[in-house]
Write a protein that binds this DNA or RNA. Sequence first.
DNA 1: AACTCCAGCAACCGCGTTGTC
DNA 2: GGACAACGCGGTTGCTGGAGT
Length: 288
Amino acid sequence: MGRAPCCDKANVKRGPWSPEEDAKLKDYIEKQGTGGNWIALPHKAGLRRCGKSCRLRWLNYLRPNIRHGDFSEEEDKIIFSLFSSIGSRWSVIAAHLHGRTDNDIKNYWNTKLKKKLIATMAPPPPHHLLAIASSSSSPSSSHYNMTNSLPPYNPSISTNELLTPHQEMMMTMMDQQQQQLLYQEAVDSLVNSPNSNKLIMSHQEDSREQSTNKGIMLLSDVRSGSSTTSTVTRVKMEQHDHHHEERSMEDYGMEEINHLINSSCTSSSSNSLWFDENKTDDTFMLYY
DNA sequence: AACTCCAGCAACCGCGTTGTC
DNA sequence: GGACAACGCGGTTGCTGGAGT
């Protein structure tokens, strides 16, 4: 047995709303309010419409201060960031964009932003990776034998230290080439930040040069070549011996964590927005 | 001009959640 | 605490108009 219909389908009008219907609904709600009962509202307002339909029309179109079309770059960034952090929770995303509705954002994502995302995932130039390879000579750092490009993205290797859960999810929607590009993009965005001391993988068993390669590497300040380190994320790489070792966030002292967050926040031109997923929907913490 | 294709968007549908009795 | 009603959300559908042939 299916769910009972919310209204008598045979006696309600469906399809696009006429200006007259819009006016009736708007007029009624402005004078009487919704009364907390959308099911009864169309009858009271003299409309042959389903209550759900009235609610949708009001929320997405007739409500005051609704904005349509022409999303700004800033809004794009917010949508990208929120989507990569929380996924397709359109109502939550809409709550962060004044005057936008969840339906609008959803449509905008499906028709434009998704394409934009894929279009911008062109392979990044490998020069910074060469720079990494040539500057990884800090005696305290383990070395990873890097070539001039990333190791190929391998779906069997966990990327959950690098990608957010929803970037991971997006990976599952993509073909292998797109996955490689997103993977590369994610690494690139970290390494390419102005202070370049975001992407850290460290195995510092001690400072001895002969420390074993455990597959966790430290990318310290790439451009300056200094060994100051900070991180907001980790990358784990699988080595030939299949050993995994990593320095988790819990391994950092409070002072060090603060430093890491601060250094991340001071990355003036970083495009990355970091979300504290432990926060509730209403109080997302944005880390710029 | 006629037809086809497709992007954009409004609206619908069904399910999970929340509120009320 | 269970049953039911209503709400709210996200996925999907289908209409419309513009571009391309």
